[in-house]
Design a protein around this nucleic acid. Sequence first.
DNA 1: AAAATATTCAAACATACGTTTCAATCATGC
DNA 2: GCATGATTGAAACGTATGTTTGAATATTTT
Lengths: 231, 231
Amino acid sequence: MRLNESGKTSSVTRGTIRAVAEELFAENGIHGVTTRALAEKAGVNMAAVNYHFGNKDNLTMAVFRDVARRSVQRRLDNLARIEAEAEARGVSPSLKDTVEAFVDAYVNEDTPRTGVLLAHLVLQHRVRPTEWTRAIVQEELDDFALSYMEALRRAAPHLAENVLHWRYHFMVGAVMMSLSDQTSDGRMRRLSGGLCDPENRVEFKAQMVSFLVDSFGQPETAEIRMAHADP
Amino acid sequence: MRLNESGKTSSVTRGTIRAVAEELFAENGIHGVTTRALAEKAGVNMAAVNYHFGNKDNLTMAVFRDVARRSVQRRLDNLARIEAEAEARGVSPSLKDTVEAFVDAYVNEDTPRTGVLLAHLVLQHRVRPTEWTRAIVQEELDDFALSYMEALRRAAPHLAENVLHWRYHFMVGAVMMSLSDQTSDGRMRRLSGGLCDPENRVEFKAQMVSFLVDSFGQPETAEIRMAHADP
DNA sequence: AAAATATTCAAACATACGTTTCAATCATGC
DNA sequence: GCATGATTGAAACGTATGTTTGAATATTTT
């Protein structure tokens, strides 16, 4: 095995497999990709997958860990940017900018597949958690989630801590499920008679941001406080 | 095969298989149930599954079609009830009652497994759509979605048609993903340090309803209108 | 009670996967 | 330029799963 300057293995085949895997995962979902189909599309032998990645799970894990990192990095960059911009004007980031920093990572034009792939990962973890989906979610996404909630707390200081948590998870759910609509049967487009389409990234972002600003912007009601205390 | 009064096949074994299947699907997800495990837990022979249901897909489909119907029926009943109550007072149903009529079907104590099972179905359809998931979603759920949106339109008449559609799907996403959190790794509980728990049905309902009322209650902004018109 | 039909059972079967093997080829360092 | 190790290739292997089989048993019908 050839080693590159950083000590990692390097190989055209390895790179091809990885790239084709990412493409196929985005199209067909995690369980919709067989070693044979992957090898054929990549123009390599089946054994190459195991030779270069050990086994299929390792390859899958590598692809999705990378996707998770990219999405987190984008959102951290977004947060840093809006914080710098806000500071320059002597204010804190607005709620709108804060939720936009989150949603943007899934719908921007620069990283077109990230959103769909991350939705595949997260939904797969929900439908059938495995050791490696758990590892990626906890190791790559959980820390970010907590630090994002800090940003959200600053942008919506009127929300009680528990309300903030609930709504963060509602937000994640709404985003993930909308993204996954692109890869299944296009339910939103069908039900709306073509009026709405989650593949329209500009409107997706605008609708999602306004939806979230509207809900995060409201203070908690007495009723919720009671339901939490109740049990 | 014995036939009952309505002409349908009847059999204790058949009923047992169905009941155990539903239980296992709720626990382990759609792909987490093998014919062997199912037969063992039900105390029947493996071949009984194929004898009574033709094949495994048929059984799965029967279980989930039933789940989908139950959830739709519950929500239709809820809608009918709040409309009758509102009419008795000479008003139309409130937005809060309307969204509560939706959420209730997933978190009430009477049908405890419906929510989790429906989440499994919908997420499975998103992760890996098949002929039968498509059939159930379109045949059992789509009509209801459209008629529910009519109720929502009456309760939130300030929302433009496209905004209504987007937000309906955001709502479904938030509900489904929160339900699925119960069957995977309990992310909400973990990240909130135990502060929030989607298995707490009372708080789930209250938080979800207030989240949705806050967002559906707001009129659309000029910005969204532009994004829709834009490209 | 006998015949016909429905149901159960253990075992064999089919197959779609990921994985391993091992020989052939290619690249690299000496 | 040859020896060593890395890479590729075709085929075989192992396994988990749904499915079918055909005899044995139970149930229903007449």
